[in-house]
Amino acid sequence: NQASVVANQLIPINTALTLVMMRAEVVTPMGIPAVDIPRLVSMQVNRAVPLGTTLMPDMVKGYA
């Protein structure tokens, strides 16, 4: 099973992602693959992402 990107903290809307905000976890359903974490750094979320939420492609501006 491939790990997905999960929020390590509450990420407010329009926040630029940093490594500290994300962790890799095997979850269902799968979200953004953990291998993409370096690519996500400095991209912004388009909604508030609660702690423990799996990041989906439509939550990150410019990802999809």
Rank of each mutant, 00 (worst) to 15 (best):
N1K: 03
N1H: 10
N1I: 15
Q2W: 14
A3E: 15
A3R: 03
A3L: 08
A3H: 14
S4E: 01
S4T: 09
S4I: 01
S4H: 01
V5L: 04
V5F: 01
V5K: 00
V5S: 04
V5E: 01
V6Y: 02
V6F: 02
V6A: 07
V6W: 01
A7T: 12
A7L: 03
A7F: 01
N8T: 15
N8E: 09
N8R: 06
Q9C: 05
Q9P: 00
L10F: 09
I11Y: 01
I11C: 05
I11H: 00
P12N: 11
P12W: 04
I13W: 07
I13C: 15
I13N: 09
I13H: 11
I13T: 13
I13A: 11
N14E: 11
N14G: 10
T15I: 08
T15W: 04
A16C: 08
A16E: 10
A16D: 06
A16F: 11
L17M: 10
T18D: 05
T18A: 09
T18V: 12
L19F: 05
L19Q: 06
L19M: 11
L19I: 09
L19S: 09
V20I: 15
V20L: 11
M21F: 07
M21C: 03
M21K: 03
M21P: 01
M22W: 02
R23H: 12
R23L: 11
A24Q: 14
A24H: 11
A24M: 05
A24P: 14
A24K: 06
E25W: 03
E25I: 03
V26Y: 08
V26H: 11
V27R: 06
V27T: 12
V27K: 08
T28N: 08
T28F: 04
T28G: 05
T28E: 15
P29Q: 13
P29E: 15
P29I: 10
P29W: 07
M30C: 15
M30G: 06
M30L: 15
G31S: 02
I32A: 03
I32S: 01
I32Q: 00
P33T: 13
P33W: 09
P33D: 15
P33M: 07
P33L: 07
A34S: 12
A34H: 10
A34R: 03
A34C: 09
A34V: 06
V35E: 15
V35N: 12
D36Y: 05
D36C: 05
D36V: 04
D36F: 04
I37N: 00
I37W: 02
I37R: 04
I37Y: 02
P38V: 09
P38D: 06
R39G: 07
R39H: 06
R39D: 04
L40Y: 03
L40K: 00
V41S: 04
V41D: 03
S42E: 11
S42K: 07
S42H: 11
S42M: 09
S42W: 07
S42Y: 10
S42R: 14
S42C: 15
M43V: 05
Q44V: 11
Q44T: 14
V45K: 00
N46Y: 11
R47G: 13
R47I: 10
R47M: 13
R47Q: 14
R47H: 15
A48Q: 11
A48C: 14
A48R: 10
V49S: 03
V49H: 02
V49L: 12
V49Y: 02
V49K: 00
V49Q: 02
P50I: 12
P50D: 11
P50Y: 12
L51D: 11
L51Y: 10
L51C: 15
L51E: 13
L51N: 10
G52T: 03
G52E: 12
T53E: 08
T53Q: 14
T53Y: 09
T54E: 02
T54I: 15
T54D: 01
T54H: 03
L55H: 01
L55D: 00
L55R: 00
L55C: 02
M56R: 04
M56W: 08
P57M: 07
P57N: 09
P57Y: 12
D58M: 12
D58T: 12
M59G: 04
M59L: 08
M59P: 01
M59E: 03
M59A: 12
V60I: 14
V60C: 03
V60W: 02
V60A: 02
K61W: 07
K61E: 13
G62V: 04
G62W: 08
Y63H: 07
Y63K: 06
Y63T: 05
Y63P: 04
Y63M: 08
A64V: 11
A64E: 11
A64D: 14
A64Y: 03
